[in-house]
Amino acid sequence: MTPHAAPDRIRLFLCGDLMTGRGIDQIMPWHCPPHLHEPYVRDARDYVELAERESGPLPRGVAEDYVWGDALRWLAALAPDRHLANLETAITGSEDHWPGKGIHYRMHPRNARLLQAASLDACALANNHVLDWGYAGLAETLDALERAGVASAGAGRNLAAARAPAILKVPGKGRVIFLSMGSDTSGIPAQWAAASRQAGVWLLPERTSRAAAEVAAGVQAIKGPGDLVVASIHWGSNWGYTIPEAQRTLARALIDEAGVDLIHGHSSHHVRGMELYRDRLILYGCGDFLNDYEGIGGHGPFRDDLTLMYFPDLDPRSGRLLDLRMRPMRIRRFRVEDAAPGDARWLAELITTLGKQLGTAATLDAEGALRLDSP
């Protein structure tokens, strides 16, 4: 991969879920009150202690770039045109937690600057944590992102706002149209669906045909020559490698019928397989990119501490994928660091094994990055 994207291609940085609440929020200079409403853990500082038992003392009052660790070096070296992620944490001091939910993520509004530290251009918000702290929490999240200069999609003060894309100009190359939507299969409560006079998230209909038609209507109204459309979808379970046929059907329908050029799927806490369809990239599960799970047992075989930085190069004229490199990373001490060579090989083997049913494979290049192959 060249250090900078060539003039005839647009390079993106994509990653999975940013879960920057609870423990991570507690080690930042500003943090929300630590009390939680979980069935077993009542204090967010307990997650810090769990991580410290696993990896040693954690710093307190860390700078906003701390959590990004080695990722910042790769962002500088590969110079993507636009940076995109799924923000699965409310940015709020609201105390109006959503009743009946087992987990509630939030980070202090002043910590929104950590998104700026990685030069994030836009965040997907159609997920099952953005309303953890109620409608006041959602409103504060939207305001905090606007103040930070980070665009958002997928949630808003009404349905039209939730469906509205983030339109990201790439000077001299075109535009990236970033859409965010969610499925109830990811645990998004039905009550969170935005309506004409109700704030909430863009919750897709269960039927694939209706979901594709909704997305197509929005894309057709805005997509022009030189525009790349990225559909960021929160779908499916937290654990497991099986890709439901309904997800494959929806992804292909969005490409065939809605003119989507890349599917950015997330919800799983670990990396899942990926597919190339009509030269379009479908990422079924990008995994967590930042979380406070260190020291929590129970899902070790899935290696949820391993994650990827995705750097796809796309042709802005046709939308087809030109190249994909992935940097293997590890979440440790509430930050991302370069994965060890053995861990990088494990990720390559995982993607190749999962890709047997999807027509894809991954190999390690001389620089330690994963390259997507189509055997």
Rank of each mutant, 00 (worst) to 15 (best):
G182T: 10
G149M: 00
H299L: 08
R147C: 04
H129G: 04
M309C: 05
L36Q: 13
E54L: 12
M107C: 10
H4E: 14
V150M: 00
D65I: 03
M181K: 05
Q220W: 08
T242F: 08
S183W: 07
P29H: 12
S267V: 05
A160H: 08
R317E: 13
Q247L: 06
G137K: 02
I243D: 03
L347C: 06
A251Y: 04
L87Y: 02
M329G: 00
M28H: 09
G172H: 00
E337W: 04
A85S: 14
R335M: 01
R325D: 09
K356L: 14
E140C: 08
H234G: 04
G156I: 03
H35V: 14
Y66C: 01
R147M: 04
W346T: 03
Q357A: 15
L72N: 02
A369K: 10
G265H: 07
A90H: 08
T92D: 01
I167N: 03
E52F: 09
R163L: 09
C286F: 14
L322F: 04
W239A: 09
S209R: 12
L120C: 02
I263N: 01
E54S: 12
R371E: 12
D17V: 10
H37K: 12
W346R: 08
E38D: 13
A362P: 07
G187E: 03
G265C: 07
D81Q: 03
A369D: 15
Q357H: 14
M1A: 15
K173N: 00
M181W: 11
R175T: 02
P189R: 11
M28G: 07
A44Y: 03
P99C: 07
V170I: 11
Q191N: 11
A251P: 05
D315Q: 02
I27L: 10
A136E: 14
Y310G: 02
K356R: 15
D96R: 15
G224S: 11
E49N: 13
Y293R: 12
W68L: 02
L114E: 00
L159R: 14
K173R: 13
S232V: 05
D65H: 09
A231D: 06
W98S: 12
A44L: 05
G187I: 06
M19W: 02
G287R: 13
D43H: 11
V62P: 01
H35L: 13
P375V: 06
H37V: 09
R252A: 04
L324K: 01
E88N: 12
A366H: 14
W98T: 14
I222Y: 05
A213N: 11
S94A: 10
I233V: 15
E206S: 09
A190L: 15
L314N: 01
L58I: 08
R333G: 07
G265F: 02
D46K: 14
H83I: 11
A258F: 06
D338R: 13
P59N: 00
G285N: 08
L203W: 12
D304T: 07
A195T: 10
K356C: 13
A71M: 09
N86T: 14
Q191S: 15
A144Y: 00
P341T: 13
I351Y: 13
R45H: 13
Y47A: 10
L142S: 00
